[in-house]
């Protein structure tokens, strides 16, 4: 186990990865761990809680960043980052932030060996969180539907549980380097923009629903026709279809609308 002292406090932070790494830094120095770490916006007031807000400090976070790279390994960094982007809705653990912090702190003690210590619960949880996020990202690489909304401009709205936009954005950028892309995460109101040269992730405030081109409409019709035709009637199995393609994704699928 870790030799750090647990203090009866809840740490609040700004919800960014840098913010979380700042907390890792502070805990490492003070040898103390809070009960929970929660993004400020998600925190629900409770009269019994003792909270303190930890200001994000880029100097601290980049030190931790470098430190992971040097003293643990790159894989551990990915683990932590992907776990951070993962939603914890399926109840993998109580508080994902604290698991990530423990994972990194222990990593600083044991080095790259941390990646094989699956019988330690917080290590396993970080692996599970990462897997959860990557699984949805992989699924969405297939389920994203790009709609042409102007000459060579393609738009897609998605409603993912995890914060996958950067991961899948990179994927589509490589696959369609000559297409202008807008991936719009409507659950978080952020968008991944790519203009065939560079990309950025921005906040979106308005609820855009772009109009599609005439050619787009024709292809959507053809796709629906194909989709209907390719299923074998004698083997109809809607439950199986739903198991693989959960209903929560249907709103963004051309063929299921």
């Amino acid at each position: 186990m870790l030799n750090w002292k647990f203090i009866d406090e809840i740490f609040l932070y700004d919800g960014t990865f840098d913010g979380l790494l700042t907390i890792v830094f502070d805990c490492y120095i003070s040898k103390r761990l809070p009960q929970k770490i929660v993004p400020k916006d998600e925190y629900v007031q409770n009269i019994l809680d003792k909270t303190s807000f930890i200001e994000t400090d880029f100097e601290k976070s980049s030190k931790v960043f470098e430190g992971i790279h040097k003293n643990i390994c790159n894989d551990a960094l990915y683990n932590a980052y992907y776990a951070f982007l993962s939603a914890n809705r399926s109840g993998i653990c109580d508080n994902k932030e604290i698991e990530i912090v423990k994972f990194l702190l222990k990593g600083f003690v044991v080095g790259p060996k941390i990646m094989t210590m699956l019988s330690v619960s917080y290590v396993l949880n970080v692996f599970k969180l990462r897997k959860n996020m990557l699984a949805e990202a992989h699924k969405l690489k297939g389920l994203v539907r790009l709609q042409e909304i102007g000459d060579n401009v393609f738009y897609s709205s998605i409603h993912p549980e995890n914060n996958v936009i950067e991961n899948i954005g990179h994927f589509f950028m490589k696959r369609f380097p000559m297409q202008n892309l807008i991936l719009h995460d409507k659950n978080r109101q952020i968008a991944f923009l790519y203009n065939t040269k560079k990309y950025e992730i921005i906040d979106v405030n308005d609820n855009i629903t772009p109009t599609i081109t005439k050619e787009e409409k024709e292809f959507q019709t053809l796709w629906k026709t194909f989709f209907k035709t390719i299923a074998i009637k004698e083997r109809t199995n809607k439950r199986c279809q739903m198991q693989y393609m959960p209903k929560k994704y249907w709103q963004d699928l051309v063929e299921m609308k």
Binding site: F227, Y244, L253
Partner: peptide, 27 residues
């Protein structure tokens, strides 16, 4: 991809599932 369109994915990707529950990944 070199200046064209598309690339392969070693692990394969499913794009949809038909009413028979089979994965649709290719035209």
């Amino acid at each position: 991809n070199k200046n064209g369109i598309g690339n392969g994915d070693v692990s394969g990707i499913c794009h949809s599932w038909g009413a028979d529950g089979r994965c649709i990944s290719l035209l």
